[in-house]
C-alpha cells in the first residue's frame, strides 16, 4: 500500500499535509482500496469548524459507507468540488487529485497525535 513520505496519518486512514498553518486533507491509499469504488462523497461546507478526529465527511462505495475524520482541528477553507462530479478520483489519486478539503488549523500541537509515513506503514502491517 502506497504512503507518501511528507504526510502525517491517522489510525482511521486519513492523511494531512501541513503548510504554514493550513493543511490539505484526504484519505489514504489503504482507505480507498478497502472501500472499493467510491460512488459519492458528502463534502463539508466552507466555514465549517472541525475538531481533531471528529467526523466531517462521509464517503460511500457500492456496498459500504464510512465516515472520514478530520486529522486536526480548524476551519474548512476549501473543498474539492471536483469530487462531486467525479468521486472516483479518490480511488485513482488518493494523495493528489483526490484531496478532500483544506483546513485552516487552530492548534498545531495536535500534530503530535498523528503518525509519520513510516509509523503509518508499520501500523498498517499491525492491523493486517
Amino acid at each position: 500500500m502506497e504512503t507518501v513520505e511528507h504526510l502525517l496519518y491517522t489510525k482511521e486512514h486519513e492523511w494531512i499535509n501541513i503548510e504554514d498553518g493550513e493543511a490539505t486533507v484526504g484519505i489514504s491509499d489503504y482507505a480507498q482500496e478497502s472501500l472499493g469504488d467510491i460512488t459519492f462523497i458528502e463534502l463539508p461546507s466552507v466555514g465549517d469548524e472541525v475538531e481533531q478526529f471528529g467526523e466531517f465527511v462521509s464517503v460511500e462505495s457500492v456496498k459500504a459507507a464510512s465516515d472520514v475524520f478530520s486529522p486536526m482541528s480548524g476551519e474548512v477553507i476549501a473543498v474539492n468540488e471536483d469530487l462531486n462530479e467525479n468521486p472516483g478520483m479518490i480511488n485513482k489519486s488518493p494523495y493528489e487529485k483526490g484531496w478532500i478539503a483544506r483546513i485552516k488549523l487552530s492548534d498545531s500541537e495536535e500534530q503530535s497525535n498523528l503518525m509519520t509515513a513510516d509509523e503509518y506503514s508499520k501500523f498498517l502491517v499491525s492491523v493486517g
Binding site: 460512488t39 459519492f40 460511500e60 462505495s61 457500492v62 456496498k63 459500504a64 459507507a65
Partner: peptide, 13 residues
C-alpha cells in the same frame, strides 16, 4: 442502488 443508506450496511446510522 444507493444501498449504503440502508440498515444492512449503515446499521445504526
Amino acid at each position: 442502488t444507493l444501498q449504503a443508506r440502508e440498515q444492512h450496511i449503515r446499521r445504526e446510522k
